[in-house]
Design a protein around this nucleic acid. Sequence first.
DNA 1: AATAAAACATGAGGAAACCTCATATGCTCT
DNA 2: AGAGCATATGAGGTTTCCTCATGTTTTATT
Lengths: 294, 294
Amino acid sequence: MLSRRYLPSMPSLLALEAVERLGSASAAAEELNLTQSAISRQLQVLEGQLGLSLIIRDKHRLRLTPAAQDYCREIRRALQALNQASLTLRANPNGGTLNLAILPAFGMHWLAPRLARFAAQHPEVTVNLSTRLQPFDFAISHFDAAIHYGRQDWSGVDFLPLMAEDLLAVASPGLLKTPLTQANDILSYPLLQLESRTGDWGRWLAHHGHPNQRPPAMLFDQFATMTQGAIHGLGVALLPLFLIERELAENRLTPVFGPAIPSLGSYYLVWPKDAAPRAPLASFRNWIAAERNA
Amino acid sequence: MLSRRYLPSMPSLLALEAVERLGSASAAAEELNLTQSAISRQLQVLEGQLGLSLIIRDKHRLRLTPAAQDYCREIRRALQALNQASLTLRANPNGGTLNLAILPAFGMHWLAPRLARFAAQHPEVTVNLSTRLQPFDFAISHFDAAIHYGRQDWSGVDFLPLMAEDLLAVASPGLLKTPLTQANDILSYPLLQLESRTGDWGRWLAHHGHPNQRPPAMLFDQFATMTQGAIHGLGVALLPLFLIERELAENRLTPVFGPAIPSLGSYYLVWPKDAAPRAPLASFRNWIAAERNA
DNA sequence: AATAAAACATGAGGAAACCTCATATGCTCT
DNA sequence: AGAGCATATGAGGTTTCCTCATGTTTTATT
């Protein structure tokens, strides 16, 4: 339960936050369209209410104590959440909001082109997209749902498969002087790999008859940068087909050896199993379930 | 930047939050030690400031609009964060706070007995422990550090190995009528397994000369419940030695076949690579680095 | 059906919180 | 030394917040 007694007032929190960020009461006053006097008093009020001193007044400079800096970190996050929630509500007074975590590559290539249709069908829902590179625990995030890649090895969630993935070994057309005659030859080139998918090259080699290898590779955190690396001749990359159709068509990337092989994981829409049902999520689920078949 | 203009006042947010939770303005007034009149006015103020109506006044009952319910969900979280931060600060005005995510089993058996020593050495640091079953992305959580289990396959983090783990196949003493003569025989008993470690039985069998198996198993989300299941004769479990020393000593669990085998992963202290340095985390890291060798 | 109980809205007015202005004081830099 | 800039504070005005008292409508009870 929230007790009114220990919650500081909004102006005092804003004052502290601005002072911490801007380094002086005067600067904070300017940002908040107040006088320096107001800031000074709010800081005193806050210290009085919390019953401790937050600020070391040292030769007419304001310095926050370490504890106050920690405190500031927390309240800033909370204030931003309040601000964001209020702005979202103003922007969209009738419908709901859907907070969706996406994978950057999938979001750009698969979801983005389709999302306009969802927005048209459900103008009452505002979709907030936020990019995450890794699966995460819904219990500590504020997302209604997420796009994950993997093998359904998540717990406490329901999911809906969206798309399988095929991986093709590609490189810049200039990289290979002569075509490869066997898969193993690829080891003489630098290999590019996603840091979240470190087994892929081993699987690719096994698929072509060279099991139990775990070749070293340059690591990238996102497909986008890895694709750019491959285009610029950094090495051979194992990339999802759906991401590089254009690069292949325009001959900026070219297959190196063999056909595309199916990826170990797939893309899923994932949402927490025990969350209270919400209309925006239900709409989105229904829409995406229809969309993935289209 | 936070603008004062769109941040509602604390009293108005508290009023909305309480009304949503308790269902009436009168009840909210009682909880907040205010009059019903005050609540009624605060709701009007909030609606005026946001420029929309949050409440459907239907036959003298207050019902929140769907958008207002969504809004409420967000502000409640933020208010609780503010409350929590303020209370923590009051409780510990001089030192810092360390927010640590732990794995339940490791936290109970390894960390808890040692943590008192850290608290004694660093009375200025308050440690907040929070149990998480899975690794997570620091970018969306508020943790300073975490205890993870795995094989260092995380990105954007630094880590410190804490402890390796040995797995022993155990069961209730009454479960096996006759001792097993070969590892394979274990397949005639129900197997218990952690849902986050689905490869373990396969690895155990391979270790005993039966590769490429992936036996079905009952899934548990935590070691604690799985241990209880094993004790009560549910089947054979593969459990970390350090968790079941007592159960073995008191003969509530007994080894089934073979010695303990090393686990694929280890326990690590993990913290975000790019976070601003903080004294509490540094102290904790130093302490735990010394502790793990003790 | 009448009545009591409970819920919300609102006018009036006081208290508290918040802010500004004016001014004092101390540090810093040239 | 003096200009410039920083914070602190007394005095006083404005706004926000809250209560009291009262009225209206709904719901429950007798």
